[in-house]
């Protein structure tokens, strides 16, 4: 909870609070905290082409600030447990905006089986529709990351599913609504997506930022899709910090 509170502080306060004690300084400097802080600045809403998808505890809203229009997306059915790993994107094939959100099946104990639903905006009689197949693994509570070409990525939740591949990202293609798994670059020796690894989107490309603590270096990998639908990691940047 301390992290949640601190993640909502402005950068200026955080920089100042580095001098409170060594514990606070260590926490504020941790990559996982920096990530939480970044996520926090954007977590309540995501946007696409000027449309804003905003979530509250129980509802999802789609807003068009330009026209001041707002629609409330239909609620979850009662047999589902709310889990907002939601995202909004234009399906370039149909020209329609799609909202994707995850949920847990209520009737499954322990709660771990996840499903996903798609809502196509502007369709007559629009309603949430389950994806053709369920995702192979549950994802972590996190807004989906969108990548050029209509793919969504999430971090797989290994706490709920220890059998999931290490360092795996769940991938969904908006076009055919097929799920896949992308594994982090092999040379990243990470037991899971741990604190030293951040996943984000940079100019429409999925990127992985890896802070190598023992060499004080940061490497940035980007993921691109090559011919034949093959996903390939490229080590794009390696930044060495000056060691005094």
């Amino acid at each position: 909870m301390v992290v949640e509170i601190m993640a909502r502080l402005p950068v200026k306060s955080l920089v100042r609070f580095k001098s409170v004690c060594t514990g606070w300084r260590a926490m504020i400097g941790e990559p996982s905290f920096i990530h939480a802080h970044l996520r926090c600045s954007a977590s309540s809403a995501t946007h696409c082409d000027g449309l804003v998808l905003a979530s509250t505890a129980s509802k999802l809203y789609l807003l068009n600030p330009a026209t001041r229009d707002a629609i409330t997306l239909p609620a979850y059915g009662r047999s589902l447990v709310i889990n907002y790993a939601a995202g909004l994107r234009l399906d370039t094939v149909t020209g329609k905006y799609k909202v994707v959100r995850s949920f847990y099946y209520r009737s499954m104990y322990p709660i771990s089986r996840m499903g996903m639903e798609v809502f196509t905006v502007g369709e007559a009689d629009a309603r949430w529709r389950k994806t053709i197949t369920d995702p192979p693994y549950p994802v972590r509570w996190m807004t989906a990351l969108f990548v050029h070409g209509g793919h969504l990525f999430w971090c797989i939740d290994r706490r709920l599913c220890p059998d999931a591949p290490r360092g795996g990202l769940l991938r969904l293609s908006l076009q055919d609504e097929a799920f896949g798994v992308t594994i982090l670059p092999n040379s990243l020796d990470v037991p899971a997506l741990d604190d030293n690894v951040l996943v984000d989107v940079l100019h429409g490309e999925l990127c992985v930022v890896h802070a190598v603590s023992d060499t004080a270096a940061v490497t940035i990998w980007t993921l691109s899709i090559a011919g034949g639908g093959v996903w390939r990691w490229e080590r794009r940047y390696c930044i060495r910090r000056a060691v005094s």
Binding site: R16, S19, V20, C21, T22, G23, W24
Partner: peptide, 27 residues
């Protein structure tokens, strides 16, 4: 409640936060 807590501490000095949370300055 988390946001309110953050709002309460964001304008404070490090010393005020040490007082509020009973933190010992170990620098």
């Amino acid at each position: 409640a988390v946001q309110r807590t953050a709002d309460l501490i964001k304008g404070k000095t490090p010393e005020q936060n040490r007082e509020t949370f009973g933190i010992v300055n170990d620098f």
